[in-house]
């Protein structure tokens, strides 16, 4: 039932053409990042993961906003409760998010955007790829959570939704600058990006993973609380 509802949402998202905007956004992003020539995977993927964060959040908001409000109520009754409806929405957002992440990871290889080590001391190609894939997957949960929090069902109006989305993205970038004392308050966009340049650094990877997951869980709790209050 949850999978059927997720499929219904995905069908609606694609059929209404709303899937095109974030898809094109990713292609533009890749054009800008790789337009200057090939880069090593850790560096390029780390940077693209940070830029992908607001696009993933935006896509999640668009996906969850496709359904008319009355239809959402019908769906809650049909599936037997708010919890299953919320899980189905997150599942659909996860599926679309994975597509964008795969696009971000695969397209650079197709256009010659990735290169191996250039100088002694550069991380091996495989290390850079693993670190880059990790960075992209790491930022997916907080991006989905931010997009869900910005959705109409949670915040009620388009203006509030845009404010939450933009605010979350700005916090992610601004709080993550080097030596920021409040970096722990935001999803680790910039720290992750810096970390992947050096290849595999298991200690910091685990730390950032925990930070991203805690941030995502807290924001999702906020989303669920708003949904319970509004529905």
């Amino acid at each position: 039932m949850i999978v059927s509802l997720a499929r219904m949402r995905l069908f609606s998202f694609v059929r209404t053409g709303r899937a095109m905007a974030p898809f094109l956004g990713v292609l533009v992003m890749l054009g800008v990042i790789y337009g200057g020539g090939p880069a090593q995977p850790g560096e390029a993927y780390g940077f693209s993961a940070a830029i992908l964060f607001p696009i993933l959040a935006w896509q999640t908001k668009i996906l969850l906003d496709v359904e008319p409000d009355v239809q959402r109520r019908l769906t809650v009754v049909a599936i037997g409760g708010l919890r299953s409806e919320i899980v189905a929405g997150i599942l659909a957002a996860l599926a679309t998010g994975v597509v964008l992440v795969l696009l971000t990871l695969v397209v650079p290889w197709m256009i010659g955007g990735i290169t191996g080590p250039r100088e002694a001391g550069d991380p091996p190609l495989a290390d850079g790829v693993i670190a880059g894939v990790w960075a992209n997957l790491l930022l997916l949960p907080p991006a989905l959570a931010l997009g869900a929090l910005a959705s109409r069902a949670a915040v009620g109006t388009a203006a509030r939704g845009v404010a939450v989305l933009a605010g979350g993205a700005v916090v992610g970038f601004a709080f993550g600058v080097r030596d920021s004392p409040v970096a722990w308050l935001a999803p680790p966009l910039i720290p992750t990006s810096r970390s992947t340049v050096d290849g595999l650094a298991v200690g910091s990877m685990l730390g950032y993973t925990a930070q991203a997951l805690v941030w995502a869980v807290l924001v999702l709790v906020g989303y669920v609380m708003l949904r319970r209050r509004n529905d």
């Binding site: 059927s4 509802l5 219904m8 069908f11 209404t16 359904e67 239809q71 769906t75 049909a78």
Partner: peptide, 19 residues
Amino acid sequence: PADQPFTARRYLTFMAKVQ
């Protein structure tokens, strides 16, 4: 809420499977 990109049959099929 008729402002949805389904035919009546597809919509009802989705809703039935959701249930």
